[in-house]
Amino acid sequence: MTDALIDKTSGWRGTREIWIRAAYEALLENGIDAVKVMPLADRLGLSRTSFYGHFSDRKELLNALVTHWQARNTGNLVRRTEDYAETISEAVLNLFDLWLRPDLFDSRLEFAVRNWAHTDESLAGMLEEADRVRIEALQAMFERFAYDPNYANIRASTIYQTQIGYISMKKDGPDEPLAPRLRRMPYYAEIFTGQKATEAEIARFLARHPLPKMTGSQGVDP
């Protein structure tokens, strides 16, 4: 979601995007109970009336958050499973980009939505459907490389449940340096696929995720 600069002028009512952004931030910080019109208006320095210039009610705002979650997390995951790859190892490394780029897969939002679903039956149903769609997409990725459907389903489920479990343990995102995470990913890919990625495949993956430059004793591990 693009950050919006708030440039207030006389009579300014904000924009739909700014209200959604404020709701998104409130959801991540304090959960769904914090996503209410007056607290958001106070956060933005706008009036309650301004909100209704963009949304009919709070439910419409919540629906916008759900739509954003579906598009970013489910939509991008499905598209990434369909990306071109010459081998299953390359396909899985392509998938791993999601776990390293919040613009592709927002782990903090995923955590917040899963918590929200505990108190919203309708959202719980949408979450269950999202899980189904994502696992089916992962299974189809394995089947594209001639894996038996039963094994493809188990491998898909293992990848998915591993990452969702990781997200559930890391509310505020990874708390470990990037370098060791990147080092482990080729091993994860080998475990998930049963095949070892080539040096060229690993090199292409690492090139997409350059480490920040360090000086002195802060260099990456040897």
Rank of each mutant, 00 (worst) to 15 (best):
A91E: 02
R155Q: 10
D106H: 13
R79A: 14
I135A: 11
F142S: 03
R155H: 10
L5H: 09
S10D: 12
L44C: 13
M38F: 04
R13T: 02
F105C: 09
A85V: 04
D131E: 10
A41D: 06
A64Y: 00
A117H: 08
N73A: 10
R58S: 10
A26Y: 01
G45M: 09
K171V: 04
G14E: 12
P212K: 09
L182A: 04
E121Y: 08
P39K: 08
K213N: 02
T158M: 13
V37Y: 11
H68E: 11
S168T: 01
Y151W: 11
I88F: 06
F142C: 02
V113R: 04
M185V: 12
A4T: 10
A26K: 05
R114G: 07
T81G: 04
K36S: 08
F96R: 14
R181Y: 01
W69I: 00
W69S: 03
M169V: 02
Y187D: 06
P186D: 03
G173Y: 01
N76F: 01
A85T: 04
A207R: 09
T215D: 09
G165Y: 03
T15E: 10
Y151Q: 13
Y188R: 05
Y24A: 03
R58K: 14
L138H: 02
D97V: 05
V37H: 13
N94Q: 15
I20D: 08
L93R: 10
Y24N: 07
L93D: 10
R108A: 12
L138P: 00
Q70W: 10
I164P: 06
L95D: 05
P177E: 06
G219A: 07
R79F: 10
T49M: 14
K36G: 07
L123T: 03
G31M: 06
Q195T: 02
H68T: 07
Q70H: 14
N30G: 15
V92N: 09
W12R: 03
H68A: 12
Y24Q: 08
R181C: 00
I154K: 15
I167T: 10
V35R: 14
A156Y: 04
A156E: 02
Y188F: 10
F51L: 14
A41H: 05
D172P: 01
D83S: 14
E176F: 11
G45Y: 12
E199V: 00
A137M: 11
G53P: 02
A203H: 11
D221E: 15
D83L: 15
T198K: 07
H118E: 08
R184V: 06
Q139G: 09
D57H: 13
K196C: 12
T215A: 09
A41G: 05
E90A: 15
T162R: 14
G219F: 01
S89F: 00
N73S: 08
P149H: 04
G165F: 04
L5P: 03
I154V: 14
F51S: 10
I202M: 08
E25S: 01
E201Q: 05
R155F: 02
S168I: 00
M169H: 08
P177G: 02
T67V: 07
H68W: 11
N150I: 13
K59S: 13
V35E: 15
R144V: 03
R134I: 01
E176K: 12
E25I: 00
E17Q: 15
L44W: 10
A137Y: 11
S107A: 11
L46S: 09
V78Q: 05
R181N: 00
D131R: 14
A85F: 05
S217N: 14
E136T: 12
D3Y: 06
I88G: 08
T67A: 15
